[in-house]
Design a protein around this nucleic acid. Structure first.
Lengths: 199, 199
DNA sequence: TGTTGATTTCAACGCTAGATGAATTTCTCG
DNA sequence: CGAGAAATTCATCTAGCGTTGAAATCAACA
């Protein structure tokens, strides 16, 4: 048994404070404009401490995005049930996530995806492998049509998030999630299981 | 007639080169990551010259976005015709603009809209006052329903642009515009003139 | 108490950014 | 030509960034 002397790990509140501050600042400003100094300031901590705990800014970003949402648990839950209402349930799930406190992390990735190339790649891979591909198998779509159906679905959902949370165009910005779900769900439903025009 | 002595204005090539370079770099990198130095480099010009002609970076951005597209001429053209196919024509117009060389300027605003707050406001005001409001009157929508209809339309179109030109998710990224128009047009049409669920 | 090692701070490096003002070149006209 | 104004360049300022390494602080153990 290795008897370690010296100060025991103790105060890891600060590590958590930094993570919380990082999520908030990344969500508000996006990856590039969120400075380590600003995050440290929000956590009332010295900037160097951030590096001491997380190394680089990249790693901090990944660490702060890591915990929040697990689509492998949420998606099947939303997609299970009648195929005819999967679109509505999917939109509802997305809005519920984004409106929740955990949605800050998702918004951070979204905001960062335009200004920064590697966060865009991060988001693209996440969307494609964790969301779309999963939805495809869950709904047992025709493999030939699956890519186009999921990409079209992505257009409607991405646009919804863009207008509601980034551009904040009214009345979409402050509508209750339920009403928005009823309005947008059918379009998604159509992309998932409706007739496709000849391409 | 005022006869000014000294060197006549002459070489305005450089001013134009700077504008061209600015549009290209802004479109590729977005407002924040497009540096004056990079723009000057692309125009093969000293960075200070850019300031000499345009003052600040803000003004350069506005100047380079100024000429390209005039929605007051294009929109009526696209919206005129049967109401039942206005959605398809609108999507077709948008894709034609973005695929054209002039679309670089539009893409610049779009890319910049997430990373920078005042460019987002710029885009929001442009979209609301120049596009949506115009479309509303052109289609003579019910004033009570107009805001929600145009905002929903914005979600679908913004998402389409986001997935096709920013995230570049296949197959939407490289589909011919016509096929995409056929796939997405009906959704837009539904938002413009279809039945709205109770809100 | 004094050693130890984790926690936290301090000061600084190297870099890039937008912006400025003086200096220099280049052209046109009297 | 040479004066004068525009076009263009040069050196530089200030500010912020991520990052680093050494120093200081602190709590638990021997």
């Amino acid at each position: 048994m290795v008897r370690r002397t010296g100060r025991r790990p103790g105060n890891q509140d600060t590590r958590q404070s930094i993570l919380h501050a990082a999520r908030a600042v990344f969500a508000e400003r996006g990856y590039d404009k969120a400075s380590i100094r600003a995050i440290a300031g929000a956590a009332e901590v010295d900037p160097a401490l951030v590096h001491h705990y997380f190394g680089t800014k990249d790693k901090l970003f990944l660490a702060s995005m890591n915990m929040p949402i697990d689509p492998s648990k949420l998606l099947p839950e939303a997609l299970a049930g009648p195929r005819e209402s999967a679109g509505v349930r999917l939109v509802g799930l997305v809005l519920r996530i984004w409106d929740s406190p955990a949605g800050a992390a998702a918004l951070a990735v979204f905001r960062s995806a335009l200004s920064n190339e590697w966060t865009a790649r991060l988001m693209r891979e996440f969307v494609v492998t964790q969301v779309l591909r999963r939805a495809v198998t869950e709904l047992s779509l025709d493999p030939a049509e699956a890519p186009i159906r999921s990409a079209l679905t992505a257009t409607q959902i991405a646009g919804l998030l863009f207008v509601r949370y980034v551009l904040r165009i009214e009345p979409v910005a402050s509508m209750p999630a339920e009403a928005l779900t009823r309005a947008v769900g059918p379009s998604v439903q159509h992309y998932l299981t409706g007739d496709l025009p000849q391409l």
